[in-house]
Amino acid sequence: MAVTFLEADRLGRRWDDPEPEPPDAAASRRWIDFVGHLLSTDPGGCHVAEESGDIVGFAISQNRGRVWYLATYGVLPDRQGRGIGRRLMDAVLAHADGRPGLFSATTHPAATRRYRLAGFTLHPQMRMVGRVDRSTLPAIGGLRDGRPDDLEWMDRLDTSLRGGGHGPDHLHMLHTLRLVVSDARDHRGYVYIDPHRDRPALLAAENVPTAETLLWEALAATRDQTLVNCVTTANHWAVDVGLAARLDLDQEGYLALRGMPEPFPYLASGHYL
C-alpha cells in the first residue's frame, strides 16, 4: 500500500503540494491497525492479488448492514494494465451482494471507467487546504467530547443520511480519533478529528447549522496546515466555512455512489466513508 499510494501521490501532486514521502513507522502502524480492524470485522470483503507469492494488489471492502463501502484499493504501478484491478473490483462487488455502496475515488482514467461500468455515479469532490486564519474563528458552544453511549444515536443519524450506520467503525474511530458531538434535540451531529494529520476525518449532522458548527470546531482544533476533503456539491455549506477560514479551494477525485443519494449534510471519510 505504501508503494502504491506514494506513486499515486507523486503522479497527482499539485505544483504547490509538498513532495510526497513514504509513511513513517507510526503512520504505518496506524494503517496496519486500521486494516486489521477491517479484516476482523468483515474478512469476506478483503482481497489481495498475488504473483509468485508477492502481493501486487489489494481491495478491502466492508458490508455494514444495508450499505457496502470500499475502504481502500490499489495495484502496484508496474502491475497495472494487466486486469488485476478489474478482478479485485469484481471480487469486492460480489461481496456487496447488491447493496447500495460508496467510496472515495481518484481520477485514474482506467479506474474511473471501471467504476462507471459497475453502475456508480461519480460525484466530483472538492478539497480545502491551508492554515486556518485564527481571527475568523467564531465562538462555539453546545458541543462536547463524544462517549461510547453516543454511538447508538450516531448510527441512527448515519442511517438517515447514507442508508446505513458505521457500526463497529465508530468504536474503532472513537479509540483512534477525537470525537466531538452536538447532542441537543434537533441539532444532533458529530465530527471526528484526526490528531495525527490535523484535520477533520468524518462529519455528519441533522442540519446545515449544526454541520457548520462542528466543522468550525474541527478547524479550531487544528494547529498547522489542514485539509478538509470529500466535499461534494451538495455540501457547499462546507465550502463556505472553509473559505471563511481562509482555506484554499481545489478539486479532488470523486465520491462514487451506487443506489443511494448524495449524503447531506455530510463529509465522508476517505477510508471509513
Rank of each mutant, 00 (worst) to 15 (best):
A2T: 13
A2Q: 14
F5Q: 07
F5V: 10
E7P: 04
R10E: 10
R10N: 10
L11W: 15
P18S: 00
P22A: 04
A25P: 07
A27S: 14
A27Y: 08
R29A: 11
W31E: 13
W31P: 06
G36D: 09
G36N: 11
H37L: 06
L39D: 15
V48Y: 03
E50N: 10
G53L: 07
G57L: 02
R64T: 13
W68Q: 09
G74Y: 08
G74L: 09
V75M: 03
L76C: 03
D78M: 06
R79K: 04
G81E: 09
R82K: 07
G85D: 14
D90V: 01
H95E: 06
D97H: 09
D97I: 07
F103S: 01
F103R: 01
S104Q: 14
S104E: 14
T107M: 01
P109M: 07
T112E: 11
T112R: 13
R114E: 05
A118D: 07
F120P: 09
T121D: 11
L122F: 00
Q125S: 04
M128R: 04
R131A: 06
R131L: 00
V132C: 10
V132L: 08
R144V: 00
R147F: 12
P148D: 12
R156D: 05
L157A: 13
L157Y: 15
D158L: 04
T159H: 08
G164W: 04
L171S: 14
H172I: 01
L174W: 02
L174S: 01
H175K: 12
V181G: 09
S182V: 11
A184L: 12
H187A: 14
I193T: 03
P195D: 09
P200K: 01
A204D: 00
A204V: 00
E206G: 04
V208E: 08
T213E: 12
T213M: 09
L215F: 00
A220T: 11
D224E: 11
Q225L: 15
T226Y: 06
T226M: 02
V228N: 00
A234P: 05
H236N: 10
H236W: 11
V241H: 15
G242Q: 10
A244T: 05
A244H: 00
R246T: 06
Y254H: 03
Y254T: 02
L255T: 15
G259H: 09
P261I: 03
F264G: 01
F264N: 06
